[in-house]
Write a protein that binds this DNA or RNA. Sequence first.
DNA 1: TGTTTGCCTAGAGCGCACTCCAAGGTCCTA
DNA 2: TAGGACCTTGGAGTGCGCTCTAGGCAAACA
Lengths: 150, 150
Amino acid sequence: MTIVEEKTAADPCAEAQRYLRPDGQDQYTISEVAEFTGMSAHTLRWYERIGLMPHVDRSHTGQRRFSNKDLDWLAFVGKLRLTGMPVADMVAYAEMLRAGDHTSRQRQALLEATRVDVVRRIAELQDTLSVLDSKISAYAGAGQAPERTA
Amino acid sequence: MTIVEEKTAADPCAEAQRYLRPDGQDQYTISEVAEFTGMSAHTLRWYERIGLMPHVDRSHTGQRRFSNKDLDWLAFVGKLRLTGMPVADMVAYAEMLRAGDHTSRQRQALLEATRVDVVRRIAELQDTLSVLDSKISAYAGAGQAPERTA
DNA sequence: TGTTTGCCTAGAGCGCACTCCAAGGTCCTA
DNA sequence: TAGGACCTTGGAGTGCGCTCTAGGCAAACA
């Protein structure tokens, strides 16, 4: 929790890179990663199980040790999740990555389709925002006039 | 179907007001409303059952006859749904509406909270968009370079 | 030397938002 | 007057994305 509040001074967008990654240390326990990413440890294990994460390194006793690369990937997954992309599609992307270079065309296509989707969703939300604004200003102006249109 | 393709010339945003509502006619069957709103008839009945719709008028044989006011409400619900607002919250709003004028302050607050949420989501999506763009341009530029960062 | 804490696994369970089913009534056309 | 499309209801089922449970292992602390 305390870590979340710190941020690198050079980063203009605190939301994007919430977690601190000291360069000297490249080994995170699952609970640390849960804290950094906001995902639960259950979710992280589940992501690995369904193939949304590459297999994570283990300690000699079998405990997961996440790397900075894993954190990068999880940050990306977190972004995709915000777009409403189905987990199955993310898994498909991850599998294409694992499959190698010959899938890069498909991966690019998938990202581009996602991009189109995100643009559409932004437009929808902006439209919704204007609806909300007009209702809110009706409430602010009258007090009970908006009753008619809900 | 044919109705959907017509649109009022004055409306700059076809997405928002997809359906045509002839002023002379104020009675729609559930399947018509399903077509206009893109919601299934099942969903419309379900919305009524859970209290997200006010009770809809019935024909003498008990079939639903939706009014233009119902369509307005459904359009609003559709917008709220796009924001990711839980259905339970929308029901709460609907109940406040039914409860009368003394809830208008709370309703306004709820809409304002929703607004804040929508603004945040737009920001998140725009952030995601820039992540996607940088990945896409990496794919477009190199072909296999993005491999490292996924 | 306990006890607590954190982690492991496979698999079951949950909440949400629908979505469908069964059994039956109604409307419309021929 | 028959047939088919459409509507009704209550309740069960589905798919998704987690979320939790049970039973157990390992390290750290009192």
